[in-house]
Design a protein around this nucleic acid. Structure first.
Lengths: 147, 147
DNA sequence: TTATTTGGTAGATAATGTCAACTAATTTAT
DNA sequence: ATAAATTAGTTGACATTATCTACCAAATAA
């Protein structure tokens, strides 16, 4: 990708960054032969961060900001691959708790390692303050649009 | 999408932002019944910014950071819809110059207007300095990954 | 001159994504 | 208490975005 200039617009900068990031993740995951896609990785990551590594599908829909049909399919695949299991949700008979299996949890370490490498490269030369500010602005923009 | 917290990771913030942005663009474009997809819009925008509104396919590949097969298809569709035409490239017989038609140029105004609205919403409450810094960091990150 | 690389086209397929329909459970309204 | 409305999840159908490959002709390198 051409070295992007400032005048191109902030949205193009963002598109370029995300595309590059996703590409790096995909290559890292493929290189480790994990048999996962980018979205699988994201679901696993989200679950790994949650208390007890569990959430309902609807919670994942909200956390990932994706359509429930897509989330259902991703979960179905992760369940099929033994990385996630379903458990009864005592609070609501319509839903189940999606939980990382032991296999899923172990995979998390591999994924984390790969991600950290890419993030480190991406953030090279930036101070903690810059990164913090960047993240804050990102969140603010997202929330601005999400209303 | 759940109000995203800081601890989720910068990459998730970015994913959330871009997803929301794309969604807003898609809705705006659909509402105006332009019959375009997000990627069409981006190609048109890039061409509109270039001197003489023209570029070779390969230049677009570089500017958009996308695979040449994808770009070829997008261009094919835009040509079919009369928004872009092909002209001989005097410098290289293998390639042609892709140029916005009058129709394409006029469409650019509509697209720009829609985009500006969304960008304004997205950037509400942020100072020019913050935005400038944000864009610089974005570009730096992208270039960090693009090596 | 020959070998290699490059620009573009199209095949084949994967990944991501949306809208709709449906059923059962839950919540809200009467 | 009962009926109406909403919601959680599943699946169908399809759109959009994206990648890798093969190929041919033109351009470049050896």
């Amino acid at each position: 990708m051409a070295r992007m200039k400032k005048e191109t617009g902030i949205q193009e900068s963002l598109m370029g960054l995300i595309h590059q990031y996703k590409k790096n993740i995909r290559h890292a995951v493929n290189a480790r032969e994990l048999g996962l896609t980018g979205m699988h990785v994201r679901v696993i990551n989200i679950l790994a961060r949650l208390p007890k590594s569990e959430a309902t599908a609807n919670e994942l829909v909200k956390l990932l900001g994706r359509d429930k049909a897509q989330i259902a399919r991703l979960l179905k695949e992760l369940i099929f691959n033994g990385l996630v299991t379903k458990q009864e949700n005592p609070l609501d008979k319509r839903s189940q708790l999606l939980v990382l299996t032991e296999q899923g949890k172990q995979l998390t370490q591999t994924i984390k390692q790969a991600e950290q490498q890419i993030l480190a490269q991406m953030q090279a030369g930036l101070t903690p303050e810059e990164l913090s500010l960047f993240n804050q602005i990102t969140l603010k923009m997202m929330n601005n649009l999400n209303r």
